[in-house]
Design a protein around this nucleic acid. Structure first.
Length: 726
DNA sequence: CTGCAGCGTTTTTTT
DNA sequence: AACGCTGCAG
């Protein structure tokens, strides 16, 4: 056996070889967190302290789970099949499949992704004649999910006003609709399995006794419910010495908590320490990733946050290069710089895979993509529209879902008239009416209402019945192939102008099913007897990393969120503008700016050798040109670490032009007599530094709109306000 | 019932 | 700029 403990530093070694007890590992960026986690598992098993059967490891993404599995396979000579390694959602799915009866679910229950959930809610509102302006579906979805993530059912939800009372009612109705349809949303997977274990003592004991070691990655991103779930499963109230109950080994970094917006509670780290009586928190502070300047910048930045658990990363790599800062005239100009620079890097020996272009929001990728495309640089965009989110895929899967579970109204409404077969909104409303009255699914209503052939609805029911019959004995990929054909999907996209890519995606779906059968039969122990159900779960829970050109060397584009856990030789953080990064919406949220800062911290710490920070004076946003100030995060970095890059003015003469105004000239034009132009930085006695965003009127009427960053957006009369160009 | 044109709204991040 | 929804003509 290779010495798996070789080359661990002292704190890493201490963490890996900790005797059986609850543990909290505070692991800074690039400190070897994943390595510690996997080595811990390997050590527990290879020293004979425990078997694979007794391990439960939770990660946040499927990718992380896969990577852990791969590393373990390399470290351990044994079969790793018995281990439960996966995301919270994946593991809960597994639990619920195995005990669907105890959980009160049908064997083939299906999983709603966020889009499905939204359409289920829209349907609900329609059924109950609820005004969807007063109760926006998105908001209601957020309300429901937030409650579930705190472990609160509608029955316990607090209704502090009439409006909320109504929302709570709708929450309850939504849950019964899901129950009737045999579907489960993301949060429900967790809450349902939590309640099942809580209610069912034998089952709970079974798993408490089985899992001796529960290991959690990215612990700072767990929500209340996930914490409670871990607590329950570990039987933490029992003393550790007792024969049942597991040791919880949690690894996290409070400075990298960037999912508070969806219910993550950094406070879970403190709670774990207190409630699980963690005796000594182990800190991993040596960073093996970034060079000194980059790390210094990250440390300086994150110091501005309050209430940290405290940690200071260090490296024994040299200082390395300075951090390069670029100010672009426009977003296009910025993108050009980034692409030029990225090309230079490849000439200097950087491989394209090792160059990442990061941004705060997905919309920003467009300009970068355009420049990359123009320059002929291969690139790959992560996130955005996922494979399983594409409409053609969702349509095909909806047919598959209906075959497995006719009560799935979400699937039903999606494809009942796609491709169009003469079932319009009128018929669907009638169906909904009937289903509502009979308290049955749309499918049942349709079947009993128009049992006789000939009607459009009757034909649709017959189509599904036939599909079910014909595919009964077929392997999964052939089922999919068959239904694409028979449902008319293929025909439909064949006729559509832009349909070629969609057809390719449908073919890719068949491939995905084939691959799924091969891969999953190895790893997932094939304990889910029904391949259809498990493939559908896979489609809901997994982003679908099948993207074209995956093998090719390409520059990597992604949001900062998506970059967490990754590292690159060279990183560009783009769009460092006030209002964009930090995002303006963040100011409204509790501790929003601190979360933005952590996001920036994550971004900075992705870089190994070279880091670029860039921003633009003007940017197209929502179809309009916006003028903004540099992000104040830039000011939080020590000047000595930065190297400002200026480019020849001729290079950036393509700034977006703003319409000419009387008192204030457009950005690209000449400066007007009073020295002001749109995009001009100005100084105000009270509000400080700002930038002119727009202007109107002339003479004594002239007013300008100025963005003062933290002081907000102001309209000022030029006659009175003393604005000095800055 | 279908398809299209025009309109308003959007957008933070995602398992 | 892009998408989804509504309203209207065919």
């Amino acid at each position: 056996m290779p010495d798996i403990l070789a080359n661990l530093n002292p704190p890493q070694l201490a963490a890996v070889t900790l005797p059986p007890q609850h543990a909290l590992i505070l692991a800074g960026a690039g400190s070897g967190k994943t390595r510690v986690l996997t080595t811990r598992i390997a050590w527990l098993i290879s020293t004979g302290q425990t078997g694979p059967h007794s391990i439960l490891a939770v990660t946040f993404t499927n990718k992380a789970a896969k990577e852990m599995l791969a590393r373990l396979a390399a470290m351990l000579p044994i079969n790793i099949r018995g281990m439960w390694i996966g995301t919270f959602h994946g593991l809960c799915n597994r639990l619920l499949r195995a005990h669907h009866r105890d959980a009160g679910l049908p064997a083939l229950f299906q999983i709603l992704d966020s889009a499905d959930q939204l359409s289920a809610i829209k349907r609900l509102l329609k059924n109950f004649n609820v005004d969807d302006v007063k109760f926006p579906p998105r908001e209601l979805a957020g309300f429901i999910n937030a409650h579930k993530e705190q472990g609160i059912r509608a029955a316990q939800a607090e209704a502090y006003d009439d409006y909320t009372r109504r929302r709570v009612e709708l929450y309850a109705e939504y849950d019964s609709q899901c129950q009737r349809e045999g579907v489960v949303d993301f949060a429900e997977l967790l809450l349902r399995s939590y309640e099942m274990l809580q209610r069912n003592e034998p089952l709970r004991h079974h798993y408490q006794e089985r899992f001796r070691h529960i290991l959690v990655d990215e612990f700072q991103d767990t929500n209340r419910l996930q914490y409670a779930w871990l607590k329950l499963l570990s039987g933490h109230n029992a003393p550790v010495s007792r024969p049942n109950g597991a040791c919880v080994f949690a690894v996290g970094d409070d400075d990298q908590s960037i999912y508070a917006f969806r219910g993550a509670e950094v406070g879970n780290m403190r709670d774990l320490e207190r409630e699980f009586k963690v005796e000594n928190v182990i800190r991993l502070e040596q960073n093996y990733r970034s060079q000194g300047n980059i790390l210094d910048a990250a440390n300086a930045l994150i110091k501005n946050n309050r209430g940290r658990l405290g940690k200071n990363l260090w490296t024994d790599a040299g200082a390395g290069e300075p951090i390069r800062v670029f100010e672009g005239f426009s977003d296009i100009d910025e993108a050009r710089f980034v692409v030029d620079e990225a090309r230079e890097l490849t000439l200097d020996g950087y491989t394209r895979n090792q160059i990442a272009l990061l941004y705060r929001s997905n919309a920003q990728s467009r300009v970068l993509e355009h420049q990359l495309f123009t320059a002929g640089v291969p690139y790959r965009v992560y996130g955005g529209l996922r494979f399983f989110d594409r409409q053609e895929i969702k349509h095909a899967l909806a047919y598959l879902r209906l075959i497995g579970n006719p009560d799935d109204d979400t699937a039903f409404t999606r494809v009942v008239n796609f491709p169009t077969r003469g079932i319009g909104s009128r018929s669907i409303e009638a169906l909904q009416e009937a289903a509502h009255r009979a308290n049955s699914s749309l499918y049942n209503a349709a079947a009993s209402l128009s049992g006789k052939a000939g009607t459009a609805v009757g034909n649709f029911i017959r189509l599904i019945e036939t599909l079910r019959e014909e595919t009964r004995a077929l392997p999964l990929p052939e089922i999919i192939d068959h239904l694409i054909e028979r449902s008319g999907l293929r025909q439909h996209y064949l006729a559509e102008k832009e349909g070629r890519e969609r057809l390719e995606n449908l073919d890719e779906l068949i491939n995905a099913a084939t691959n799924f059968l091969h891969e999953e039969s190895d790893t997932l122990a094939a304990q889910e007897a029904d391949p259809l159900a498990s493939f559908l779960a896979h489609a809901s829970l997994e982003a679908g990393e099948h993207q074209a050109g995956e093998g090719q060397e390409a520059v990597q584009l992604m949001t900062v969120h998506a970059a967490k856990g990754l590292e690159f030789d060279a990183v560009f953080i783009t769009g460092l503008e006030h209002g964009l990064f930090p995002h303006e919406n963040a100011a409204q949220e509790r501790d929003g700016l601190e979360e933005e800062r952590r996001l920036m911290y994550v971004a900075v710490t992705r870089a190994r050798k070279r880091l670029y920070l860039s921003y633009a004076q003007t940017r197209m946003l929502h179809g309009q040109t916006r003028y903004s100030l540099p992000s104040f995060f830039l000011e939080e970095l020590p000047e000595a670490l930065l190297h400002k890059i200026n480019r020849a003015p001729a290079y950036s003469n393509n700034a977006a032009t703003a319409p000419a105004r009387a008192a204030v000239s457009p950005a690209s034009g000449q400066t007007s007599a009073n020295g002001l132009r749109i995009g001009q930085n100005v100084q105000h006695a009270k509000f400080g530094l700002g930038v002119i965003v727009s202007a109107e009127g002339r003479g004594t009427e002239a007013r300008v709109q100025v963005n003062f960053g933290a002081h907000g957006m102001k309209w000022l009369a030029l006659e009175y306000a003393k604005l000095a160009p800055a």
